[in-house]
Design a binder for these strands. Structure first.
Lengths: 334, 334
DNA sequence: GGGGAGTGTCGAAGCGCTTCGATGACCGGC
DNA sequence: GCCGGTCATCGAAGCGCTTCGACACTCCCC
């Protein structure tokens, strides 16, 4: 099979109709009688026809490809990124679109280039930061875009993310309900807060607000990702506050170290210290003990981002902000 | 700026030349006088011209896009995958190509579809397994492809990977030189070996061969990824072989647990047990103590894969197998 | 039983680019 | 001073598709 590539003309000839009729069968943009449609569809499959993407893009001014733009900083959050990416591809396919991968190496030029060359119809940006250099460019582009994460000035943009403030608050509420009155948040490395990464700050804000609301004592600390740093942070914390009994960990890479360090400091989980994590499910499940956690719903975020960008492509209005409700999964650590 | 999109016709008019001349300036396929070239290039920049990707693909039968096909199984190896992906994109850009991301969800149909629709010119497959359903399809496609990893029957295919057998052997050699005569390999979870994943097996083979060659005692065990499993495997191992003093860990997810478990079993690293890991650099560096490791050179593999696929696109011959030499980085754990 | 409103289908004109053959201008050799 | 050969450039023919206007029917209402 597949000697040469099959064109719409051959399909038309095979089905005994005009080329335009085949096109209309495929696009559904004009009514076609059931009989003709059948014949055309049969010919399509008999010949193994696939429309030529370039020709289609040229004639229709739509490439049916969206760009997925990777974050500026590699190294953070990595496994989650992969799940986002995979979710975005899967969701895009459901709208009959493919996904072009763009890295930050090329910076804003890459975005400009693929937009200008009509390679893609729209953009999904992952892991947007508060002060993101790609954002101003997006504003002047004709192509629609959706951001995963929130920049400092999100007005007029379409952004999706987990509601991290609610996630932080939910962890506090959970620990408070369990009777813990002195708790701590171990967050991202200090540099991440300084850089102004939105999700880290928002979690902390949610934590702080909930601590006040629930009338418990809580302290939020940044947390480096080496065992030694985690160990010393924790031992200091437990020395200063011996009755600390609840811990919220929002740092995927440090989760394992936190558990090891507690073990080594002679604290049992959950008997002495209850631990809630904000991290992907697989990390929480693989920990020992498995962690009660607020999962980062990568699939859901990816799917939602694609849905929004498709709405915008169709000219439908899209809400500026979409915050996905966090869900707490109960496991052995609380 | 950028009211409407600029076409080659407008560039030609602006520069006072024919459309074909502009095209030849861009492609270099015919000689153009220096003066004309200059004028054309100036016009291109003045107008901000970018060739329309679809039109170009239609006329030239080349899309300048390659497909990057994600592995069938998600969840394994994840951060490394992301680095591969990023390396592939960066390398592809150097050849003026973009990268389309394909997931396994769509299976072989996705590959067939993008090939038939001329969306991509070539394929790079990540994390190929011994018995990979995508391989037979690739063989019948006209588009060139390169595999990262090795299937069971690689004849006639172009494959790239780290030389895992050499990596396993190198770890053994390193430990043997340091005077360790009783060592063990903690590998991937049992299911990974059963599934026939190439890199896991090849590391083990390299380990076993090197153990014999260096006349040391060595045992290779699969290794699950929860702390409890790691702990019990290790404690059993140390009970049965109290003088075991060298450990090779080829399981990114278990690295942290191995160190915690050793700590908890009262063995110091490297004083009591020397540990070598085969894992990405960042994992080795973040461990405590930082691990001597054979790094998985994601960037290099990605770059090499792209280079090979571009050679094939140009009709140049490409070697069937490319094995990248492993490099051992000395750190505190041995 | 003639006019208007749908239906279903066709033909042709592009979309923006590459590429092939043709054409002029210019050169050196006789 | 005319001929063959480069060199630089042009014009036009597609590439495979979508879309627009036109056309031929059928149906129904007055």
């Amino acid at each position: 099979m597949s000697g040469r590539t099959v064109t719409i003309t051959e399909v038309a000839r095979h089905a005994g109709v005009a080329v335009s009729t085949v096109s209309y069968v495929l696009s559904g943009k004009r009514t076609i009688s059931a009989g003709t449609r059948r014949r055309v569809l049969d010919s399509i499959d008999a010949l193994g026809y696939h429309p030529h993407a370039g020709a289609r893009a040229l004639a229709s001014k739509r490439s049916n490809v969206i760009a997925l733009v990777l974050p500026l900083r590699a190294g953070m959050h990595v496994p989650v990124l992969m799940r986002f990416a995979s979710a975005v591809v899967t969701a895009a396919r459901r709208f009959d679109h493919d996904v072009l991968l763009l890295t930050a190496d090329e910076g804003t030029d890459g975005i400009r280039r693929v937009a200008a060359s009509a390679l893609v119809d729209a953009f999904v940006l992952m892991d947007v930061e508060l002060d993101d250099s790609r954002v101003p460019l997006l504003r002047e582009l004709a192509e629609p875009s959706v951001l995963i994460g929130f920049p400092a000035e999100p007005a007029g943009l379409t952004c999706v993310d987990l509601d991290f403030a609610a996630a932080g608050a939910q962890c506090v509420a959970h620990l408070a309900e369990r009777g813990h009155s002195r708790i701590a948040l171990l967050g991202a490395p200090a540099v991440v807060y300084e850089r102004g990464t939105g999700f880290a700050r928002r979690t902390r804000e949610g934590f702080v607000a909930a601590v006040a609301a629930h009338r418990v004592t809580g302290v939020a600390l940044p947390c480096e990702e080496t065992f030694d740093e985690v160990y010393s942070t924790l031992s200091r914390l437990l020395r200063d506050q011996p009755d600390l009994s609840g811990l919220v960990v929002h740092n995927e890479a440090a989760v394992g170290h936190v558990l090891s360090a507690l073990r080594q400091l002679g604290r049992r989980v959950p008997e002495d210290v209850a631990v809630v994590a904000i991290c992907p499910d697989d990390v929480a499940e693989r920990a020992s003990p498995p962690l009660t956690s607020v999962l980062i719903p990568a699939e859901e975020v990816g799917r939602e981002a694609v849905r929004l960008v498709m709405d915008k492509l169709d000219g439908k209005p899209a809400p500026d902000a979409t915050l996905l409700t966090p869900h707490l999964a109960l496991r052995a650590s609380t």
